[in-house]
């Protein structure tokens, strides 16, 4: 696994985190009838998680040196 390079490992790690954040049971954390800034928390939470996942991906893919 060590030979596989840091970038590949980071991407796989991020993918696993993303899958768990966008599915049950972690998704239940947002599943409430509450509003934040006037917006229901469920869609808002999904959009926030989505944005963070993309930002993390940007950081990983643009900043990790590729050993290949």
């Amino acid at each position: 696994m060590l030979k596989k390079g840091l970038l590949a490992q980071r991407l796989v790690g991020w993918f696993l985190l993303a899958v768990s954040l966008l599915n049950f049971p972690l998704l239940l954390l947002w599943d409430h009838n509450v509003t934040l800034w006037g917006i229901p928390i469920f869609p808002l939470g999904l959009f926030i998680v989505w944005t963070l996942l993309i930002l993390g991906l940007v950081w990983i893919i643009e900043r990790t040196p590729d050993e290949e």
Partner: peptide, 8 residues
């Protein structure tokens, strides 16, 4: 989005 995380 998930697919693209593994896209590279």
């Amino acid at each position: 989005t998930l697919a693209m995380i593994l896209g590279w």
